Simulated scan of single mutants.
Amino acid sequence: MKKQTKPKHLGLIVGGGELPQQVAKLARQAGMMVYPVNLSGFAKTKSELSNGPWRSIGQIGGILEDLKDADVSQICFAGIVDRPNFSTLQLDEIGRQEMPRISTAAQQGDDALMRAVLSVFENAGFDIIGPDEIAASLLAPAGQLGTIEPNQQQIADMNKAAQIAKAVGQLDIGQGAIVCRGVVLAVEAQEGTDAMLRRCASLPKSMRGTRKEPAGVLVKTPKPGQEMRIDLPTIGVETVQRASEAGLAGIGFVTGQTFLLERKAMLAQADRLGLFLFGLNLQEIE
């Protein structure tokens, strides 16, 4: 008789957005047992994962205890978690021990902050894997997606926005930029992509495109040298909608390093709104 292999147990630290649900679904399809720990204030209160324990981000000891009780050895962080106000966090004992080091790292930038957080879990004996290792099927392919093809001006804007986003990322500021007719309209900082798009939409129409006459391109790239197991760029239906509201002509993203959520719906939305979607090769961004 063939010996049955025991399913791998995966601890999933659940932040906001759709990515955690997609990661959990694909992990289960791969034969993993998924044990979610939901982060209060970020994770969806009504989802297939919400029956797992809930912890605030300051309850580091509680999170570690939940994972150990679930007998997991591998963990994955998925979903949006905004930078907290460290002075108001409710901390447990382990949180109080670790927070001085974490808050000091936060002053060096988001990447240093994320590395400090991950080290807490690694030091506790957990193997951390990126969502891309589980959900590779969600990663962006190369070239044009959908039916809308960028013109020469839009390609030039996309290439410049990619260069700007890479430069901004090198300074650990953000992951995105918007360029319209050769002019930089916005770069992403702590406010995030959605807020950057809303800011762009508030600019005078003489500076940007409109829904009737779209112009300009948003490009999202990972930060050069960033911790790749957490915080890869993510694009979904809402990103497409906000880009259209800002009068943009399209969205560019890095092939193999950007999650495309609800891809079928996102492509349908982009085609309906007249936006192009394009996967860029990271090595070609100078």
Rank of each mutant, 00 (worst) to 15 (best):
S47L: 07
A136R: 11
D110R: 14
F278R: 07
G79A: 00
Q175L: 08
A165H: 06
K2P: 14
Q22G: 15
G182Y: 15
G79R: 09
L282K: 02
Q97I: 09
S202K: 09
L19I: 01
D71I: 05
G52N: 08
E213G: 05
V14A: 02
P7S: 02
E18G: 07
R272S: 10
G52W: 10
I173V: 05
Q144W: 09
I13L: 15
N123C: 11
M266V: 02
G52T: 09
P20T: 13
M99L: 10
A156C: 08
V168S: 12
G61K: 04
M33K: 11
K46D: 11
G146F: 13
A268F: 02
A201Y: 00
A136K: 11
E48V: 07
M32Y: 08
L67D: 01
Q97Y: 02
L139A: 00
S103K: 14
P36H: 02
V168F: 10
Q97M: 11
K6S: 06
G176A: 12
A265S: 03
E286L: 06
R55T: 04
F86C: 05
I128R: 10
I164N: 01
K8W: 03
L39T: 03
D66Y: 11
A30M: 07
M196C: 03
G58K: 13
F276I: 12
T5Q: 05
P53N: 15
K205T: 13
L261H: 00
A142N: 13
E48P: 03
I129H: 07
D92E: 10
V183P: 03
P141H: 11
L203E: 02
K68P: 04
L267I: 13
Q90G: 06
M99S: 12
P204M: 09
L248W: 00
G146R: 15
L171Q: 13
I60P: 00
I134S: 08
G109D: 06
L138R: 04
A140I: 11
P131K: 10
D194A: 04
A156N: 09
L67K: 06
L280N: 13
A106P: 12
G125S: 14
I63R: 06
N51L: 02
R272D: 01
K44D: 00
F253L: 13
K220F: 05
A142K: 14
Q21D: 15
T5V: 13
T234K: 12
I230E: 06
Q90T: 03
A167S: 12
C200I: 02
F86P: 08
D127G: 12
A162Q: 04
P53V: 06
Q170S: 14
A249Q: 12
L277D: 00
D71M: 00
G176S: 15
E188C: 06
P53I: 01
G16D: 04
P224D: 10
N51D: 09
D66E: 10
I164W: 08
D271E: 07
D92M: 07
I178Y: 00
P131R: 04
Q154W: 06
N85L: 11
G252K: 07
G58P: 12
G146W: 14
S56T: 12
I230S: 11
K46T: 04
K160H: 09
S56W: 11
V183Q: 14
I128S: 05
E93Y: 02
E133Q: 15
G182D: 09
D92Y: 03
P20Y: 14
